[in-house]
Design a protein around this nucleic acid. Structure first.
Lengths: 186, 186, 186, 186
DNA sequence: CAGTAACCGAGACGGTACGTCAAGTCTTTCT
DNA sequence: AGAAAGACTTGACGTACCGTCTCGGTTACTG
């Protein structure tokens, strides 16, 4: 890959992250990204199909390393802790950006793959590790797929994040995790 | 309330529903709604803060009667059936509009109350009826709040609807319902 | 005339004058006049054809008494003094409103008669008195009509007021009056 | 300057002139100009602060060449002829547009510089040439400034144009010119 | 002095244009 | 030749004010 391209790519992502931090997704205008990064709009559109894709990659890339997996040696505690952490993340200052990004993805299907690739897949895999570990130990029902487990554990959080119909406190997260785990543990 | 206002209000909602059906949320432009309904833009903006709110009310109002509650006389079956129905709705031709609306609500917090009022609240109450009925019969855990139950049952569906990371088939809906209900039933 | 109508009429004019003073013609919105006066918009439109007419009558009525005629016993001085006074008026805090009103009259021919009736005619007549007095004394050329005299004396002021291409100081007014009077005096 | 910008600029002015001819200033809507010229509204607003400015430049630019200077070799005749020409212009089919433009300029101070630059300045300079020529020949009073002369000669015409209180016939123009020139000639 | 007709206040509505914004495309110019 | 710069089109936004209209309730004239 052309080193100039690499440079441009990175500059764009860095600028985008900065803008997302400052004003959320609405602030991450293509013009703003271009101005901040010094990379021209035309070039940006050569690397990504649209602005949502840029934001998805930028934000997802950063989140990748931001959330280490718990390892208490016990499936229930591992998963419950993970739910708690994700809930805290959603409730924290980056939660809104995540929600905005997810929302933008709906309105703009072309960006969905980027969101999945750079954001969902990584986190999904992380949880899959926990799940497989638990499965190996026989702590969880083998009849339940990882997919179902993940949706059951994190779907409720997403639901709350998006609609804001109920708070995302630690207590709430624990209640959700507890109920969900009853259906998942062996 | 002024009969002229009532008339205008209804005309707008009718036009909006038609547009949503034809082209989803992106088609429900305020200009288009105005043109189709014969109600002026200024008037629309006197009744609603922005276009998302209009769409939310229009769509929510219609959905209200579109989904009758199951009553099999048995909590497990009632709730599982409801999950199946909601899943089918999401998977059907109105699912996309619902997703778009939910997404728009995130980008436009001013419209959120409308979405909640005309869409979530009604459905939430419907399920609450099921839940209370089950609670009265002692079929579900009294330690679990309705809120948690609802999120656990429907959050996963919403999650899938939005990210499209997994299908919304009947089988999937049943798997989710089964797992969730294990954590909810007494 | 119905006393209620008289009341409404006066209230509207009073409110309009207040608004003109506060924010010039742009502030004298029909809505604002209605709100301030307590007279409904419908009623206002029963009395006047449009908002410019209202403003013209309001402003003109007030100006009528605001400018007494000079009487030095000498045509040259009378007329020069009048030019000076009108110039000062235009340069003063009401000048802008006058200009705005005159301008509005162009864009809205329906209001022109009101402007003429309540504003120009009165002032024109006032100067005509001076002119006739001078004519009787043989101080001015009988070959010049009052119309021409008036235009020559005050047209330049209006020109400057509208375009702002030159100041409206006392010195300038005197220079104009001096030059014009050379062509008018016998 | 970017050739694309030049193109857009010219196209806008051409479309505006056409619209002014067809329906006067009220027809020169920004939307109409945009549609007619094929230049987008956004671009128009990058070149001009508002629609009045566009109209002023368009109209003024055209007028520049439309009125050649008289040169009879005699100040009195030159100036009288110029007054007659300007009067005829005001009375003609473009007079209304000029008046509307002048009026719009009052209501919209942001456009005033455009009006002055593209309209007044040019014509003012033209007359200044006449004046200087006459001054050099000693035909006019050196005590009178060009400004005063111009205002005295053309102010009355503007006054009549705007208020319509008196006609703008050739005879009237001559009467005004005659009276004014008496005050201006040596 | 009662009844009717004219008038009014309140305020919503249709219409027209405004000026703004961001997305994504396309041209020109520089390196 | 390829990227940067940046101007352009498109399409919608939300706002402002105009002048019209409907409604319900008062006021003033009239028989």
């Amino acid at each position: 890959m052309n080193p100039r391209s690499v440079r441009a790519h990175n500059d764009v992502l860095a600028a985008t992250i900065a803008l997302l931090d400052e004003g959320g997704l609405p602030a991450a205008t293509v013009d703003a990204i271009s101005a901040r990064s010094g990379v021209s709009k035309a070039t940006i559109y050569k690397h990504w199909p649209n602005r949502t894709a840029v934001a998805a990659e930028a934000f997802g890339r950063r989140m990748a390393d931001a959330m280490p997996l718990p390892d208490t040696g016990n499936a229930r505690d591992d998963l419950a802790e993970q739910v708690r952490r994700v809930s805290a993340f959603y409730a924290g200052r980056h939660g809104l950006v995540f929600a905005q990004l997810l929302a933008a993805t709906v309105a703009d299907p072309e960006a969905a793959p980027f969101f999945r690739q750079f954001f969902l897949d990584g986190r999904r895999q992380a949880v899959a590790v926990l799940w497989d570990r638990a499965l190996a130990r026989g702590e969880v029902k083998s009849s339940v797929t990882v997919e179902t487990a993940i949706d059951l554990l994190f779907g409720p959080l997403i639901f709350r994040l998006l609609t804001g119909h109920a708070p995302l406190t630690v207590a709430e997260a624990d209640a959700i995790a507890a109920a969900a785990l009853t259906g998942l543990l062996a």
